[in-house]
Amino acid sequence: MKKIYPNATAALDGLLHDGMLMAAGGFGLCGIPELLIDAVVESGVKDLTIASNNCGVDGFGLGKLLDTHQIKKMMSSYVGENDEFMRQYLAEELEIEFNPQGTLAERMRAGGCGIPAFYTKTGVGTVIAEGKEHKDFNGETYIMEEGIFADLSIVKAWKADETGNLIFRKTARNFNPPAAMCGKTCVVEVEEIVPTGSLDPDDIHLPGIYVHRLIQGEHEKRIEQRTVREKK
């Protein structure tokens, strides 16, 4: 199967529709699918529900989709770097489903493994547990969380071979693999595509079975909060 496409717009052709559930990789601004996000903005698709650790920052990453009001609901664990996110939420223009960070990652991974739900102690006794099934195991209370089965996953990896086997770098590995797993279709952007067979199987973080379309591109890699020491 040919997986390599010339650009982000071509890779998303025929996959986008209003009201869809999309999983997006990244941790802060680290390892976000910048090019694919821009293509989603340009497509004009609307009423999106996006499952992602965060929603970018003002004017960058998923924040661009906030600026164009294409997002209806965010399923996230951290939203503290985006003023427009706060404004839309307080104005009741945006729905939020908060998830503990580990729970969100596991919900994505579960979806990718075909697991419809699981039990966790995280969130018991808090607002996170409201409206969810409770069950006791060995005298401890757990709540049920549902797996995420997204219509589309958009993720960013460092390197891929032509069949879509992926390698991630450092923090980019936090959410990109589970986000990639949970989508019915997964589109990946990478910095480098190498010939099939040139990657050591032990170095591959996500097998190509999860990857349907692939692009290579240049990335800005913006730093979310730059902190430096004064020059002495």
Rank of each mutant, 00 (worst) to 15 (best):
L152S: 05
P207M: 05
E140V: 14
A39S: 12
N138T: 08
L16F: 06
L21F: 11
G19W: 06
E92I: 01
D38T: 09
G217T: 04
H205L: 13
E93Y: 09
N7S: 12
I209D: 14
P207W: 12
G14M: 06
E145C: 13
I143G: 00
I4F: 05
T122E: 13
G44S: 08
I167L: 14
S198V: 07
Q225V: 15
F149D: 11
I71A: 04
D67R: 15
F27Q: 10
I37E: 04
V45K: 00
P100C: 01
M86E: 11
L94S: 05
G19M: 09
K46C: 14
K231I: 15
I50L: 10
T103P: 01
F60H: 11
A11V: 08
R169G: 01
V40D: 10
T68S: 14
R87S: 08
F27R: 11
L48S: 04
M1R: 12
T68V: 14
A11M: 06
A150D: 03
T49A: 11
E34D: 14
E140Y: 13
L62G: 02
Y5V: 00
Q70T: 02
Y210D: 09
T49W: 06
M20R: 00
P201V: 10
F118P: 05
M75I: 15
P195V: 04
L65A: 02
L36D: 07
A172S: 15
K3W: 05
P178G: 05
R87D: 10
N176L: 11
I37L: 09
N7E: 07
L199F: 01
P116G: 03
L206Q: 04
D151Q: 05
K132Q: 10
Y142T: 03
G147D: 09
S153M: 04
G63M: 04
D161H: 01
L36V: 10
D18T: 02
T126H: 02
S52G: 05
M144T: 08
D202H: 11
G183A: 05
V211P: 03
G28Q: 03
Q70F: 02
E130H: 08
K132D: 03
G14Q: 07
A157R: 00
Q88F: 06
F98W: 11
Q101C: 07
P33G: 05
G217D: 10
E220C: 07
I204S: 03
Q88W: 01
T49P: 02
V79Q: 12
I148L: 13
I154F: 02
S43L: 06
Q88L: 15
M1F: 10
P207T: 15
M22E: 04
N53S: 06
T122P: 00
H134L: 13
F149K: 12
T68L: 03
D136P: 02
N99K: 13
M181S: 09
M75Y: 08
I115L: 12
M1D: 11
P195E: 14
Q88N: 03
I204R: 01
V228N: 02
G147Q: 09
